[in-house]
Design a protein around this nucleic acid. Structure first.
Lengths: 350, 350
DNA sequence: CCGCTTCATGACACCGGTGTCCAATGGGGC
DNA sequence: GCCCCATTGGACACCGGTGTCATGAAGCGG
């Protein structure tokens, strides 16, 4: 079989034994070179390293995985409505992994299923993953974190709240970011501001809501229950949730939607009713997804550094593995920025 | 070490030896059961299978990978401007992989770099990938296909043209789909129809352009060079490309943009100039991405079954591995549908 | 100059599966 | 009752790395 393969023209893959033979040392010594063992004579190391470089030898990852009981694979676990976020996160993680021996394995799961936990467990144990990055809202599941601890699998949770566990977390401060956005509305003169909240059970939804309430409270503005509508982070839910707000009399002069998709829904609803944005209604979204610049007017929104957060998460995971000396001091908390576009104006003076 | 780990509370992982001992057979026999060898006594097989089920034993993928010289990993290679497409493709592939022992490893590459080929080669050989799915425009690279053949790595190329190699391809017929869309415009009475083409070097761009030209030719409509503008498949390029078309006098009454992002750009440009859509200008896009329903008016577009195509691609790859009997007869060619929304109307009768 | 420690290296078993090849077993034909 | 063959199961080596421990050489103090 092996010989046949060679005949077929594949590069005859080099093994550690070949290198050892060429260098006139034992395979263990080659292994030491590869793993940067400090117990090596300088000359021997240099000689072996030269041969490795010249031959282009790369250790077989499967064999290493077997011997070490651990793979050089990072898993990305998500169950998420936000397509843009998944892709940006992938981008960030892949940036960090680029040039290392790590690969990214992706794994969508069904949060609703009662098999999620077993599903993820078998994912990390079967493949002997080096570590996993968990996206919200799965990341808010503490039982999952405990399970991963038990299994001895490293993990980083992405979140949207003040950190309680910086070592295993990368988060953005959604509450403060939303408060800033709403302060901006208030500074423009708005007093009747509606909220389209995110789904129950999402930490980000709760944080954003609290930020909203915080800003109003600071300004001494009361928040009647009628100015709050529930959404599901989807365009359609934003569209329908905004109807109850736009039916109000007096109508709110501004609406904060807990994400851009829902903000786009508000904008769409406004157009259906002939309400001019931003003249008669100001809108602010959250996420800074591309849709904000495709619609008219472009939406004012809150941008969080999602790619950078993905990169940080990956570096936190692999940091201990690659740079022994290079201290891994990735920030755990990221702050967001209000991006001012065309969907906010002072309220009509009526 | 191993004992320590056990002390830490991890499930003491079962190996094939444990199963063999419990069943009172040799590990090779267990291996035969796992691999469905036909040379086994029925009773023995049943006994071993029962034990495997009861204990929940799962073979170590790393050990199998080492012994077999092949991993149960599918790679996804892309270098693509279309975010939506990547995610939908991932979705389709993951659907097909769900419940199998395969995992999906993703790998963005830089088409521009002269290291792409080596990059991909090391990706598939190092990890000993079972196979790869290649997204356009990388998939149009024949040298890449040859290289994968050489390396003995299975592959499926995603494309947008009539097939020349159904075994290694999954494609949509973009030319005919665009021709249909343009026929729709012509049927509405449009005669001056502009085209925003995709970037040079993209097969899909060329196919779509040919479909556009085909429909005009059928109707006996000539296509002056001025009615064609070059785009890059991005919103911004669509926005700026449409300017030259909208400056024309007489202005085109309809524009086909080679993808939705650029169509959104056309819509945005129209709004900036106060051109009413669809009354004064009809627009059709391609891809049926979410943005088409977020903007106003919602965009008429061409939908291609991208998730189904991803699923088909994955099944083509793994089909031979899982169902020996279940014939793998995934279709290789998919057709698209015109989705009529609000951005097309008959031209103003002037 | 000797014995001890320290450093550098190698022999060997092992990770958990799979392929090869041979032995044992049982049944059928004569 | 004997022999041959087909069927079934096991011993063993191997995939390509890593961990453990032993060994030999060099360094050092007394």
């Amino acid at each position: 079989m092996a010989k046949q393969k060679q005949d077929e023209g594949q590069a005859p893959k080099l093994t550690i034994n070949d290198i050892a033979r060429m260098a006139g040392v034992s395979k263990k010594t080659v292994s030491r070179v590869i793993n940067r063992s400090p117990l090596l004579n300088r000359e021997t190391r240099d000689r072996v390293e030269t041969i490795i470089r010249d031959t282009g030898y790369v250790p077989n990852p499967q064999a290493r995985a077997l011997a070490l009981g651990r793979n050089f694979l990072i898993g990305l676990v998500y169950d998420n409505p936000n397509v843009q976020m998944i892709l940006s996160m992938q981008k960030g993680i892949l940036e960090a992994l680029h040039g290392t021996e790590f690969e990214l394995v992706i794994r969508p799961v069904d949060r609703g299923s009662n098999l999620v936990m077993e599903d993820i467990r078998s994912f990390v144990t079967r493949q002997r993953l080096f570590g996993v990055v968990i996206l919200p809202p799965m990341s808010e599941n503490d039982a999952l974190a405990r399970m991963l601890d038990e299994e001895g699998c490293r993990y980083v949770r992405m979140g949207s709240a003040v950190l309680d566990d910086p070592e295993h977390m990368v988060a953005s401060n959604d509450r403060e970011a939303v408060a800033d956005a709403v302060r901006h509305l208030i500074a423009q003169g708005h007093r009747r501001i509606g909220l389209i909240a995110g789904p129950h059970g999402f930490r980000s939804a709760q944080e954003r809501r609290e930020g909203f309430e915080l800003a109003l409270k600071e300004a001494g503005i009361s928040l009647p229950r009628s100015l709050v509508a529930d959404g599901q982070y989807t365009f359609e839910s934003g569209l329908s949730a905004s109807e109850s707000l736009l039916d109000l009399s007096p109508r709110p002069t501004a609406i904060f939607a807990s994400n851009d998709e829902m903000a786009a829904g508000v904008l769409y609803a406004a157009r259906l009713r002939g309400i001019a944005v931003p003249e008669e209604l100001s809108i602010i979204g959250f996420d800074d997804t591309p849709v904000t610049t495709r619609v008219w007017p472009p939406l004012t929104t809150v941008r969080w550094p999602i790619v950078a957060m993905g990169r940080a998460a990956a570096l936190k995971l692999i940091g201990t593995a690659i740079g022994e000396d290079a201290e891994v001091n990735e920030p755990s908390m990221f702050s967001s920025t209000l991006i001012r576009r065309g969907s906010v104006a002072p309220p009509a003076t009526s």
